[in-house]
């Protein structure tokens, strides 16, 4: 039982983080908070991949004398790419927030919606 829980603990926490991020994105109106939520979701996906790539008693995939068990290098490569792309998309989202603030004077979704309706 303990072994089953430890074998799935990482995945459950990752799902919890994923859902926390998702909840922030769909339930909050403030755009900076939404982007923080989106980033939490993103990091949880990174954790999921790295957890899947981990091998018990393995070491980092750098070939060295005296080690035979290495963790899977492929998820690491994919997530390296994803982290950098994630920052690029975050910066684009934040630039949009700055522009929205200039155009509407607010970054709250409800107020932007009201302004659009009253036009």
């Amino acid at each position: 039982m303990i072994e089953y829980i430890l074998g799935h603990y990482n995945y459950w926490i990752v799902i919890f983080l994923m859902m926390t991020g998702f909840y922030i994105v769909i339930s909050r109106g403030n755009m900076i908070k939404k982007i923080a939520g989106l980033n939490i979701f993103q990091v949880s996906v990174f954790l999921l991949y790295i957890s899947i790539g981990n091998v018990r008693d393995g070491t980092a995939p750098i070939i060295t004398e005296g080690f035979t068990v290495y963790s899977n290098p492929l998820p690491h490569v994919l997530i390296l790419t994803a982290i950098v792309v994630g920052v690029a998309t975050t910066s684009l989202a934040l630039a949009l927030v700055v522009r929205i603030r200039e155009a509407y004077g607010t970054i709250e979704e409800d107020e932007i919606h009201n302004k659009d309706q009253s036009l």
């Binding site: 990174f46 981990n54 950098v84």
Partner: peptide, 28 residues
């Protein structure tokens, strides 16, 4: 979890640049 390269990138890019970008947006 044995992902040293990912840890470097996350610490520099995720914790560093993302936070700075968010703070810059807050200032603007």
């Amino acid at each position: 979890l044995d992902a040293a390269d990912v840890a470097f990138t996350e610490a520099a890019v995720g914790a560093g640049i993302s936070t700075v970008l968010l703070l810059a947006t807050l200032a603007l």
